[in-house]
Amino acid sequence: MITMENIVRDGHPALREVAENVQLPASDTEKKQLAEMIEFVKNSQDPVLAEQHQLRPGVGLAAPQININKRMIAIHAEDASGTLYSYALFNPKIISHSVEKSYLTSGEGCLSVDEAIPGYVPRYARIRVKATTLEGEEIDIRLKGFLAIVFQHEIDHLNGVMFYDHIDKENPFREPDNAVPIER
């Protein structure tokens, strides 16, 4: 079981490396790691389990955050209508995106970053992602709004990019051009 002790913190070199593709079909070890990642994200959102295991609530986790240099992400989040989306994915790749941007008005947080880093993080408003599920199925999904932001945050981790790298250093709360604010 993954716990907060397994999450590497800001400054750890694993967070700045570009993760390697998972050779498919994935090995049993990789499948187990990815299954534990999605279990962690789900558990972190359960108030009883989160308190019991001292988990910070999260909506996503990327393998580099647990010091595994592989292109694997786990996401368990609701869209604006309250529909729950749960994904455990190998080799996710953004294959297209909108010109229009979006950003969370509350800013972004990260399980690997203990302090709040204020500022707007510009993201694409809509993205299309191809990936392979834990069960080995190839999927092609279109995402918008909050889910698109979560996916971009986790895929950034696979490329050694942290959310605060996108924040305007001179003016952290400057609204990004051509961007839709998303309340969360």
Rank of each mutant, 00 (worst) to 15 (best):
P47C: 02
P47K: 09
V48W: 06
V48T: 12
V48P: 03
L49R: 13
L49I: 14
A50N: 06
A50P: 00
Q52Y: 12
Q52K: 15
H53W: 14
L55R: 00
R56H: 05
G58D: 10
G58T: 13
V59C: 09
G60W: 09
L61M: 02
A62E: 11
A62Q: 06
A63R: 03
A63T: 00
P64A: 01
Q65S: 08
N69C: 13
K70M: 08
K70T: 01
K70E: 11
M72Y: 12
M72I: 04
A74V: 14
A74E: 12
H76V: 10
E78F: 14
D79G: 04
D79F: 03
A80Y: 14
A80S: 15
S81E: 15
G82W: 10
L84Q: 08
S86G: 11
Y87P: 00
Y87G: 05
L89Q: 05
F90N: 03
F90Q: 06
N91F: 02
I94N: 09
I95Q: 03
S96Q: 15
S96I: 02
S98H: 12
K101V: 05
K101T: 13
Y103R: 00
L104A: 15
L104C: 02
L104G: 14
T105I: 03
S106L: 10
G107E: 00
G109K: 02
C110R: 02
C110W: 01
L111K: 01
V113M: 03
V113L: 00
D114L: 05
D114H: 04
D114G: 09
E115S: 10
A116K: 14
I117L: 07
G119V: 14
G119R: 00
G119S: 08
V121Y: 14
V121A: 01
